[in-house]
Amino acid sequence: MSDAPLLEVEGLAVTFPGAAEDVRVVDDVAFSVRTDRALGIVGESGAGKSVLLRTLTGLFRPAAGTIRFDSRDVTNARGASLKAYRRDVQMVFQNPYTSLPPGRAVQNILEEPLLIHGISRGEWQGRLDSALDGVGLSRSFLGRMPEQLSGGQRQRVAIARALVLEPRLILLDEPVSALDVSIRAQVLNLLTDLRRDRGLGFVVVSHDFSVLRFLAEDIAVMHRGQFVEQGETGAVFDHPRHEYTRRLLAAMPSIERSLARRGDIGEAGAAEEKQDV
């Protein structure tokens, strides 16, 4: 494995025009991703996680900072070099309801990137089959349209679409939150296999700590546009240093915790317990 990171980000800032002045939604963010060190990002709702990922794919232009992919500066890439970068870097968007175009068959949605990037037709079927297999959808779904699919089925189509181009880096925004825990486990295992077999890099955003623990060696905790804590996953989750990280960990819902709470104080007591609203 080469020493240079697959993705290297320094001093990244993204702003949006606000009423009075520009709003800094991503503020001085720096990290690197290697094929053997995936990055997980956790943080408050509205922290800027999705905007950060979109900026990495070239959907937003940064106000400051640099993005290097495979040692090339792609911060302001255009034309052919942007197209090449976009083939290597695929994103799975957070909301499966808006990320797939309505009114088009799944087959068409999966073939579109192959067409855009000039993949020879002889390869299409094989690529579709392996992507569908990976996410557990049978070929009977190829003729269906997104509006005929459940949320989890749509999300699997979205993941399959990111896989057909055989990218080198995948940016995953809440990739499995729409899936039931068993299919979730299958997709997470699949992502791990892909990583091992193809040497893929990952950046994964999730509110689910187990997803992050499983997929990412490194973690960044994002709060109001900034990475407030960053480090090796076990270290950050087991010994959080920032106050916000501690708050997140304390709020994590769990079966055991809620059964214990009910068990200790009884069903009636549970209803009377203090509410923090």
Binding site: S45, Q94, E174, A251
Partner: peptide, 13 residues
């Protein structure tokens, strides 16, 4: 779904 756990907790409460 897709809310941070502190907001999840607030909503459940």
């Amino acid at each position: 779904t897709n809310l941070d756990v502190t907001v999840q907790e607030q909503i459940i409460a």
